[in-house]
């Protein structure tokens, strides 16, 4: 039987409580948020920017989140809100890289910088994860921005600097590949 009063109430408190306190200025609560959602932000960013940039995006995301937390109307939705912030930071970084147009930035797209690889995917989640890694980066970015961040076609086009028709095509192709992987597990 679980105790009525948690020993470390802040650590076990729900997102609404923790995000509210952080919005009010409680640094300990903010740290709980960072620890709780940091990996999600990192895993998400890893699907958009190159591996070397993930740490910076995570940092930028949470520093920005600290600033804007007071204006978050639904503290309970902080997790998906962090994805929104991470999207902005990830795209900013992509844009910066594009503007640099340095040949050295050519992504040795070791795009399988997703989770650790085992010999055979042992679950649907893992199989899809790998399939996602195997996609060309523009397809992967379109898919993640659409399915995880919930952006519309025009928004994706604007963020990635591509025509909307191209986005539509990339999305369709990414879905075709991922559906093939998913259906193989049914």
């Amino acid at each position: 039987m679980s105790p009525l009063f948690p020993r470390s109430p802040l650590h076990d408190a729900d997102d609404h409580a923790v995000a509210s306190r952080a919005a009010d200025g409680d640094v300990r609560a903010f740290e709980v948020l960072v620890r709780r959602h940091g990996a999600l932000v990192a895993a998400y960013a890893a699907r958009i920017v190159s591996p070397g940039d993930v740490d910076d995006v995570v940092q930028d995301t949470f520093i920005s989140a600290w600033q804007d937390l007071p204006s978050l109307e639904k503290p309970a939705a902080v997790r998906s809100w962090l994805i929104t912030v991470a999207t902005r930071k990830s795209v900013d970084r992509l844009r910066a890289k594009r503007d640099q147009s340095s040949i050295n930035e050519h992504d040795v797209e070791d795009s399988a910088d997703g989770p650790a690889q085992t010999a055979v995917a042992s679950s649907l989640d893992e199989a899809l994860s790998r399939a996602l890694s195997a996609l060309p980066e523009d397809q992967r970015r379109c898919w993640v921005l659409r399915e995880v961040a919930g952006l519309g076609y025009q928004e994706i086009a604007d963020e990635l600097g591509l025509p909307v028709t191209t986005v539509r095509g990339l999305l369709a192709r990414s879905r075709k590949a991922l559906v093939r992987e998913m259906e193989a597990w049914r």
Binding site: L40, S129, E147
Partner: peptide, 16 residues
């Protein structure tokens, strides 16, 4: 595929 998307990211986060 759409329904499964959040799970993929969540499991990646778990192992990150």
């Amino acid at each position: 595929l759409r329904a499964v998307a959040p799970r993929v990211l969540a499991s990646e986060a778990d192992s990150y």
